[in-house]
Amino acid sequence: MKKTLLAAAAAIALPAMANAHFLLEYTTDTMIERPGDVPVKLIFWHPFDNGHVMDLEMPEEFFMIHNGERTDLKETLEPVRFTGGENEGAAFLGSVPVKRSGDYVLVTVPVPYYEESEDIYIQQITKAFLNRSELPTDWMQPAGLPTEILPLNKPYNVLAGSTFTGQVLAEGEPVAGVEIEIEYMAAEPDMDSAASTDPAVSPPPGGAVVAVSDANGYFTFGIPEAGYWGFAALGSGPATEHEGKELSQDAVIWIRAWDLE
């Protein structure tokens, strides 16, 4: 009970300069009915306000985990262009072979991105989740990444109006006191074009929504709206420098929330 209260108390909105950078592993659906290749777009973007698109380089790693087995998907990636509300940038289109029932955990380890305005590098190690036939297999297991967010709720069918709890890990150990930026995918990539949809809602006043992990690395956030939600634990990873400059090695997770009908 004490742990739950601490985590809930930490999930508060704090002032921030602007809505956050987020690496997307976007698929139109998370619940897959039939076997086949599922297209996925990798985009480095500001999806809450349909803002600036950052150029994405070929990732260091792009793979999936299914039934505990890792499959390299980097060879499926091909360069594409993506146009947000402000500009166009380099992105990638890939493919996820969904065949058997169970979870498919998508992982992207990007090349560190140089943010000139802050004079730092950013590396967002990102996880997203697909499922076929409603059989849970892998979503609750750590992926063995330098840093990651471990979901404590099944991440592809969170109910809007409920809560989502995650645990921030670095090299498998909990990380306390980490700021977690929270982003709603108000605009979504159009899989049939190079553009995005118009934002369904506007960001709240006060800048990015932020939670803070408790002493055991946990945070909890109330999900107010159906759709895709992203969580980025800033600087939670063990690496702190790249090419002589500061590196923010972030853990990112995307979840899908649904309305009851």
Rank of each mutant, 00 (worst) to 15 (best):
I180W: 08
A20H: 05
A143L: 11
V38N: 07
A257S: 15
E179H: 14
D119E: 14
T28P: 02
E115H: 04
A13I: 04
N131P: 03
M31L: 15
D214K: 00
L24H: 06
I65D: 01
G235H: 05
I120S: 05
E33R: 11
L130A: 09
A16W: 03
L5H: 10
V212T: 15
D192G: 13
D55Q: 08
K127A: 05
M17C: 05
S117I: 12
L247T: 10
T137L: 07
M31Q: 15
P155M: 05
F164G: 09
E78T: 13
G237V: 10
L24N: 09
H242E: 12
Y104N: 05
T108W: 01
E69R: 15
K99I: 12
P47H: 07
E181D: 13
V80G: 01
L150T: 05
A176Q: 09
E243W: 03
E61S: 13
D198V: 08
G235D: 07
L145N: 08
D29V: 09
A239H: 08
P136H: 06
L130I: 06
L152R: 13
V38H: 02
A176K: 13
A160T: 03
Q167V: 13
M31T: 15
Y104R: 06
M31W: 13
Y113V: 14
V40C: 07
L73N: 07
D259W: 09
L77V: 08
V38Y: 02
Q167N: 08
A91E: 01
A9E: 10
D138C: 12
K245H: 15
E115C: 06
M191Q: 13
G217A: 04
F164C: 10
Q123C: 10
L24A: 14
G89A: 08
N87G: 06
S196T: 15
Y26V: 02
I223T: 07
A226W: 09
R256E: 15
A128F: 03
N50D: 10
A233L: 10
P97A: 08
T137A: 10
V80E: 04
D103V: 07
A200K: 13
A143Y: 04
E86L: 12
A187N: 13
G68D: 00
G227L: 09
E261C: 11
M31E: 14
T30K: 07
V201D: 13
Y156P: 00
P174D: 03
